[in-house]
C-alpha cells in the first residue's frame, strides 16, 4: 500500500488502536498482579451514567463534555469501590460487582426515563467504537505529517489518546518503585512510608482515564481485552516485572496492528466481501496471543506448586 492511500485511511486508526491498546495494557500489568483486573470491565460499565448525564446537561453529542462525564463517573465509581471495600471489609471483586452493576443500571434507567431515545447512543457504538471511521482526509501522503494545515485535520481522538498514553507512561515511570513494592507486599510498603491507599487509588484513576480515553476512540471491547490479555500473556513470558511490562507493550501493539489488518483484509482473503470490526478483531488477536502464551510461554508454571529443581 502506498503512502497516498495508507496515510489518510489507515495510519490514524492504526496509531489510535496501538496507543489505546498500550495505554490500557500498561496499568493492566499492575491491576492483573493486584487481582483487580476486572476494574477495566467495571469502568467501561460505569461510564454510561456519566455519558448520559453529560448529554442531558449539554443537550448534544459532543466529545469533551461526554469525556468529562465519563471520567467523572469512573472516578465516582473508583471512590465508591474503595469505600465499600474498606468500610464493608469485603474483597475488591465483590465491591466492584455491586458498584458497576448499580451504576450501569442507573445509566440505563436515565437513558430510558429521559428524552435521549432519539440520539445515537447505542450499544454497538459503545462496544465496538468506530476505529475504521477515524480517518485523516486532509492527508495526501507521508509528507502531510509535516504540514500544519493537514495536521489540523487529524481526528481529535488521536492527540487525546496519545496524550493519555504519555500520562500513563509518566505515572508508571515516576512511581515505578512504590507501585512494584506495594503490589508485591502492601504491609511492608506501608512500613517504609509508602502511602499505599493513595497510590492504589491513583493507579485505578490512571486506569480509569485510559479506559475512558480508549473507550471514546475504540469502544469497550478493546478496553476490557487490553487490560487483561497482554499483561496476562506477558506474565507467562518472564519472571521479571520489568520484562513483563515490555512484553505487554509488544503484545498490545501486535494485537492492534494484526487485528486492524486482519479485520480489513482477512475477510477478502477467505473470499468474504466485507471487512469485519477492527476493534473486535484486535480483541480476538489479544485473546489468541494469550492462548498461545498459556500453551507455550516459558514461565507459565505457577509457583506454589512444588518445583523440580
Amino acid at each position: 500500500m502506498n503512502g497516498e492511500e495508507f496515510v489518510p485511511l489507515s495510519l490514524t486508526p492504526l496509531l489510535i488502536g496501538i496507543f489505546a491498546a498500550v495505554a490500557c495494557a500498561l496499568p493492566g500489568n499492575f491491576l492483573v498482579l493486584r487481582k483487580q483486573a476486572l476494574i477495566g470491565d467495571a469502568i467501561s460499565h460505569v461510564v454510561l451514567p456519566g455519558i448520559v448525564v453529560a448529554f442531558l446537561l449539554t443537550g448534544a453529542i459532543s466529545t469533551w463534555p461526554m469525556m468529562l462525564g465519563a471520567a467523572g463517573a469512573a472516578i465516582v465509581a473508583v471512590v465508591m469501590i474503595e469505600a465499600i471495600r474498606r468500610l464493608g471489609q469485603i474483597e475488591p471483586g465483590a465491591a466492584m460487582g455491586v458498584v458497576f452493576t448499580t451504576m450501569f443500571a442507573g445509566g440505563v434507567l436515565l437513558l430510558e426515563q429521559t428524552d435521549t431515545s432519539t440520539v445515537h447512543l447505542d450499544v454497538e457504538h459503545a462496544l465496538y467504537g468506530n476505529l475504521e471511521s477515524l480517518i485523516w482526509l486532509d492527508a495526501v501522503g507521508w509528507s502531510s505529517l509535516l504540514e500544519l494545515t493537514a495536521l489540523a485535520g487529524l481526528p481529535p481522538e488521536l492527540p487525546r489518546i496519545a496524550l493519555t498514553l504519555v500520562g500513563v507512561i509518566l505515572f508508571i515511570w515516576l512511581f515505578w518503585r512504590p507501585l512494584k513494592i506495594s503490589t508485591f507486599d502492601e504491609g511492608f510498603a506501608r512500613t517504609i512510608g509508602i502511602r499505599t491507599g493513595a497510590l492504589g487509588m491513583a493507579l485505578v484513576i490512571v486506569a480509569a482515564i485510559s479506559a475512558v480515553a480508549a473507550f471514546d476512540a475504540v469502544g469497550s471491547i478493546i478496553v476490557i481485552a487490553m487490560f487483561i490479555c497482554p499483561p496476562a500473556a506477558a506474565r507467562m513470558m518472564t519472571n521479571r516485572l520489568e520484562t513483563q511490562i515490555t512484553w505487554s507493550v509488544i503484545f498490545a501493539s501486535v494485537s492492534a496492528i494484526s487485528g486492524y489488518v486482519l479485520a480489513g483484509y482477512g475477510p477478502l482473503w477467505v473470499g468474504g466481501a466485507d471487512a469485519v470490526s477492527a476493534a473486535g478483531m484486535i480483541a480476538t488477536m489479544s485473546g489468541l496471543i494469550l492462548a498461545c502464551a498459556a500453551l507455550w510461554g516459558p514461565c507459565r508454571t505457577r509457583a506454589g506448586a512444588p518445583q523440580a529443581t
Binding site: 498482579l33 515516576l174 513494592i181 508485591f184 507486599d185 517504609i192 512510608g193 519472571n239 521479571r240 506454589g304
Partner: peptide
Amino acid sequence: PQRASVDWDFPTRVIDVALMGLSRQLGLL
C-alpha cells in the same frame, strides 16, 4: 511480614526483594 501474606508468584527475583530494603535510600528515581 508473615510469609503467607504475599503472593510469591509475583514476577520478581530474590535479589530484587532484597533491594526493596534499600528503597528509602533509593527514593523514587
